[in-house]
Design a protein around this nucleic acid. Structure first.
Lengths: 206, 206
DNA sequence: GGAGGAACATACGCCACCGTATGGAGGTGC
DNA sequence: GCACCTCCATACGGTGGCGTATGTTCCTCC
């Protein structure tokens, strides 16, 4: 609720850059979804007016595109590079699942991700989301393959894992009381999930 | 795209009921989300004017509440009663998972469900979604308990199963190309999921 | 230290939707 | 057949956001 302090220092920052607008757009998106990315409210929030905005951007759509693009690049690199630091595939998979699961918990969950999913049909959101999702599934499938699973099996488990993540994010958002609350419970739950999705390929008969 | 035929017969149906408006509201929600539940567009779609609407409802919020209430009651009963027809817990679980997974496929997926998730933060949507979600998790956990799993374990698997469903719905919506396309592939994928979530409780050491 | 452009503010018209006020059509009771 | 109530149409004012036009400030370069 704290107001954004305008003219904070002396010289710089009294003038805005296009990046300031996209940052504010992503903030607004985290709070109120894509609908909250509105020019005039953003201008008020930044202590400016529309005149500034329409200098940096052609229209609202251009701002949305810029924000989505930045989210995609920022977001994609972050997780994967972190996971790649792990030594072996199992540790990577474990790190990956634990990370993303934890990211959906707490008061400051990844709201932008939820906002993206909530607006998946939007013409500008759809391609971004499709690319990110496809990349996630492909990368997770690679990890399962590195564990020795055949391709089809690996892809199935990757789909399940990514679905579990997306679904868990929705669960934590829509019904927070049903998901494990304490860190210890979450840890046990994540362990259980990891064991289930990494269970050895069974040879049970149908 | 076919227009709604107004004044189709002779006497009745020239006048609308409150139910007609809630039906139209749910239709609109399936197409364009909660934002599409707008009075004037709905009136146009129904071949009427706002004058009619504001006779049956106090305001837009009242319509939304009525639509959500009807969705909750209609929706909750449908699935569970169908699943309860199965003889044993395993068959019920299998039927449940297969049903909901299939419901997210094809061109006519359950769009209302996605619209609900997309607007989970809305003050009227949140409680409805919380109730439905909690009920689903509790019921699924019951099925796992009936399979002989201890309570905590059953709840974890139920959470995973419901997450997988929600996530799969998002996946199919956001990145249709990554989910199994043909019925046969979907069937194999569902089989794989069922085997993973119903895998015998392991006793592997950490 | 003045010219010119970059970065803004101000003011305007426009559109979509909400909600209200009021009048009018159509059935119903008697 | 007329009063009456139900259901709806028409017309209006209000709000919030988009985009444009034009004035205004500040910075820069020479």
């Amino acid at each position: 609720m704290d107001m954004v302090e305008r003219r904070p220092r002396k010289q710089s920052a009294t003038r805005l850059t296009a990046g300031d607008w996209t940052s504010a757009a992503l903030d607004a998106m985290a709070r109120g979804g894509l609908a909250a990315v509105a020019v005039e409210p953003l201008a008020t929030h930044l202590g400016a007016t529309k005149g500034s905005f329409y200098w940096h951007f052609a229209n609202r759509d251009a701002l949305i595109e810029a924000a989505l693009q930045r989210w995609e690049s920022d977001h994609t690199d972050a997780v994967i590079t972190l996971v790649e630091a792990q030594p072996d595939p199992l540790a990577r998979l474990r790190t990956l699942i634990a990370m993303v699961m934890e990211s959906t918990a707490g008061p400051q969950a990844d709201s932008i991700e939820l906002a993206m999913l909530a607006t998946a049909s939007h013409p500008h959101v759809a391609p971004v989301l499709a690319r990110v999702t496809e990349r996630r599934v492909a990368y997770t499938a690679e990890l399962f393959e590195a564990l020795g699973l055949p391709a089809v099996e690996a892809r199935h488990r990757a789909l399940l894992a990514v679905s579990a993540y997306l679904g868990h994010a929705q669960l934590a958002h829509a019904a927070p009381q049903v998901v494990p609350g304490t860190a210890a419970e979450r840890s046990a739950y994540v362990d259980r999930i990891i064991r289930l999705v990494t269970a050895p390929g069974d040879d049970r008969q149908e």
